[in-house]
Simulated scan of single mutants.
Amino acid sequence: MTQSKTTRSYLSAAERRAEIADAAARIGIEEGLERITLRRVAESVGVRPGLISHYYPEAEGLVATAFVHATDDESDALFVHDETRAPVERMADFLARAFSPESAELSRLWLNARNLSRYNGALRQALTAQETANRRRLMALVSEGVEAGEFRCDDIERSVILILILVDSLTAYANEERSDATPLVAPVVYATTERELGLAPGALGGHTAEVETRSASTHSEAPAS
């Protein structure tokens, strides 16, 4: 215990700020953004509340930081840029991840953030910034597909907004059992995305199966001894 406190005392300002943001993000995901208080985060990190307020004077700013911290990781997972994979494959990856069981926690976080942002200006700005960033990343992917001749899309921005709205529709079911809603929502999203990008019906569904198979085989592999 003494060693842990000694180690903590030597954290740099950047490391301490990152530690606090990570703790706040975990609380937001597991308990809800409204549970992020200076005292609650201090308990999680194992320090006095005064240290938290030194880096984040207001709880509103800490809530916004926690949301960005959590959703940055989500966006990186959704928009993996792998130059060895064609745009159509990466679009299939994007949809597969968006409808994966792992995304359920983040869907609840987004729903929570949208409700809470009505009363938290800092969170509202962070929410808008994250939505804009996701739209730009998906537009970049679609643009790349159009340039490569894989997608046919007359209005990229309109198509991207429509796709994101449909993907985001699953958030409405975030507090329910995702397995019940996904079979109803997913086919509509896949069919609409394929139509908007000029793809044949089922073009993205086939790649989705490959992604799921590849993911399952990766998790089942034992680490090399």
Rank of each mutant, 00 (worst) to 15 (best):
A24I: 00
R152C: 09
E176R: 14
S117F: 01
H207W: 13
P187N: 08
M139Y: 03
L170I: 06
A126P: 00
T193P: 15
I36L: 05
P57Y: 01
L38T: 04
L95R: 06
G32C: 04
D93W: 10
T182V: 07
V68W: 04
L197I: 12
S103G: 02
A13N: 14
L204I: 09
A216M: 15
R48Y: 13
T182R: 01
R195P: 06
Q125M: 06
A18Y: 02
L184T: 14
V188D: 12
D154C: 11
E150W: 12
G145K: 05
T192E: 11
S179H: 02
A181L: 11
N134L: 12
S143H: 09
L11H: 03
D73I: 15
A42M: 06
L116K: 00
E19A: 13
T84N: 07
I156E: 03
N112D: 14
E30N: 11
A172N: 05
A186G: 05
T132V: 06
L199Q: 09
T7G: 04
F94K: 01
S107P: 09
S4T: 06
R39W: 05
D72W: 07
G121T: 09
T128W: 09
L33W: 02
P223G: 10
Y10W: 03
S75V: 07
V68T: 11
P49Q: 14
S12D: 13
A14I: 09
Y119T: 15
L11W: 10
A203P: 10
S220V: 15
A66K: 04
D155C: 01
A42Y: 01
P201I: 14
E102L: 05
I29E: 15
R178I: 12
I163K: 08
A59H: 04
H69W: 06
V167T: 01
Y119A: 15
F79E: 04
D82C: 06
N134P: 10
L141E: 04
T2L: 11
A18Q: 08
V41G: 04
A126W: 03
D72Y: 01
L78K: 08
R90V: 11
E147H: 02
E30I: 06
V146N: 03
G145E: 03
A98M: 07
I20G: 05
V189T: 05
V142R: 03
